[in-house]
């Protein structure tokens, strides 16, 4: 099932991440003001128990997206097809709008760092990643979506900007982009670049989904913690992002210090209001 741009615009789709903290609430009060839920792929890969039953329960009323953290697409050893097979088996029955993971590496097969790690942006890694994306898309037989990550350093081996790399990767490989606006803001402050230039460079039609989240100011750097409400500066950037990609559904992420569902839902309502302001008000 693919999401047509007009449908998304008409329905102003804004979703939230599905988290175990909210399972009981959603079982008792399945009617919410959000339009879809995003499941963390790894939370459901090894489970046919309650987490899976909740997913089936939610899918009766809402579309789903699946968002992974373990594809490890940028690691030099290559794609783990056992993992990808499990992902395919998991997501297929749910007909998700989007299947995504991160444009990063996460560790070696024998020692997984469980972190989203950057790599140098240059022609060598671009060629390598185009090949890997091709393998993933061929295996899944659908367009795959990759998220820009938050990173706390760059490499001297980079000779392209992150945004030019993403643009080239999407144009050459046909993958789409999950544009995490919070990550763009965090990186723009930490790595001192213009976030608007980043947004303007990404091809509109390459954007499949938008993520919003909160960061933590650590003093020395901004840390992408997903533990706070979305910051005003990120909402401002979001206005530009949703104007640029009206077809892309928006997702509020909150992974740490997770609040009550209603607080999360209020962030989604805020995003909906911005979509209305940007697209429907003179």
């Amino acid at each position: 099932m693919s999401l047509s741009p007009n449908k998304a615009l008409k329905e102003k789709m804004v979703g939230v991440g599905l988290r175990t903290d909210h399972y009981s609430h959603l079982e008792e009060s399945p009617k919410t003001k959000v339009d879809f839920f995003e499941a963390l792929t790894e939370n459901h890969l090894g489970s046919k128990g309650r987490p899976y039953q909740i997913l089936e329960h939610i899918r009766k009323d809402y579309p789903l997206t699946f968002h992974g953290v373990s594809l490890n697409i940028a690691h030099h050893t290559g794609i783990n097809f056992d993992y990808l097979k499990k992902v395919k088996e998991l997501v297929t029955p749910f007909e998700p709008m989007v299947i995504s993971d991160h444009l990063c590496w996460t560790g070696a097969p024998e020692s997984n760092l469980h972190n989203l790690l950057p790599f140098p942006y240059n022609q060598e890694t671009l060629n390598f990643l185009c090949d890997r994306v091709d393998q993933v898309q061929n295996y899944l037989n659908r367009v795959f979506v990759l998220e820009n990550l938050s990173a706390y350093f760059d490499y001297t081996q980079s000779n392209m900007s992150e945004w030019d790399f993403l643009k080239e990767l999407s144009l050459r490989s046909g993958c789409q982009i999950l544009l995490d606006v919070n990550n763009i803001y965090v990186n723009s402050v930490n790595q001192k670049f213009d976030a608007k230039e980043y947004l303007e460079t990404i091809p509109d039609q390459s954007i499949a989904e938008i993520h919003l989240a909160g960061f933590t100011d650590m003093g020395d750097f901004l840390f992408d913690t997903h533990s706070k409400p979305v910051y005003p500066e990120v909402w401002e950037l979001y206005k530009l992002a949703t104007k640029k990609a009206p077809h892309a559904p928006t997702l509020i992420e909150w992974d740490d210090d997770i609040p009550e569902f209603n607080i999360l839902q209020n962030e989604a309502i805020k995003a909906k209001k911005i979509i209305e302001e940007v697209h429907f008000e003179p």
Binding site: L113, N115, L117, Y152, T156, N190, D220, F221
Partner: peptide, 23 residues
Amino acid sequence: KKSMIPGGKLDKVSCLQAYKNDY
């Protein structure tokens, strides 16, 4: 360390330490 350009006000060691602590 030679290949890193740390972000924010981090130096190379504190940047690596941040990733190590996070792990």
